[in-house]
């Protein structure tokens, strides 16, 4: 880097020192609190699993809440700590819009995994085939339960 200044930047966004530090502290508190809520939900799931017959719907709901809280954490880290929120709109869009690919990416592949499981459980022929090709593991478990 030979150049002394940075001529690419037209506008500097550097508000007063105190304001920034306050925002950093506030974000830290928010991130810590969200993490604590996530942990509380995690322990909730742990104790629900101790029941002989845990409610699958309730556990799924709690896991969904944890996923949403994680996305919130990601929003705060990227928006405040990485200062993406302070950049101009065009730049934000070139980062955020490509990430929308994840919507398809996650949905398609989890769906595929689910379909694979259905094939494993319903079609005896493909069951044996998938288990042999995908798991060169010590084959110990009885069929049906094992994996």
């Amino acid at each position: 880097m030979e150049h002394q200044s940075t001529p690419e930047v037209t506008f500097h966004h550097e508000p007063g020192g105190k304001e920034v530090v306050q925002r950093i502290i506030r974000t830290t508190v928010i991130l810590s609190v969200i993490t604590l809520i996530e942990l509380a939900l995690g322990f909730g799931i742990y104790f629900l699993h101790k029941n002989p017959d845990p409610s699958a719907a309730l556990i799924l709901f709690m896991k969904g809440v944890i996923v949403i809280l994680s996305l919130l954490k990601a929003f705060y880290i990227v928006g405040v700590f990485m200062h993406l929120g302070d950049e101009i709109r065009n730049l934000i869009m070139t980062i955020v819009v490509p990430l929308l690919l994840f919507v398809w990416f996650i949905a398609a592949f989890l769906w595929d995994g689910d379909s694979w499981k259905m094939l494993r459980n319903t079609d005896g022929h493909s069951k044996a085939a998938t288990e042999q090709t995908s798991h060169p593991a010590p084959s110990t478990q009885g069929h049906g339960q094992g994996h």
Binding site: Y46, H49, L101, F105, I106, F109, G113, K117, R120, G146
Partner: peptide
């Protein structure tokens, strides 16, 4: 996207299994 691909691949395999270890 690299990390996303890894984690989604993990999710696919986990969804395809009848049994998965409990992290706790």
């Amino acid at each position: 996207f690299t990390f996303g691909a890894f984690l989604i691949s993990y999710g696919t395999i986990r969804f395809s299994q009848n049994y998965w270890p409990d992290p706790n």
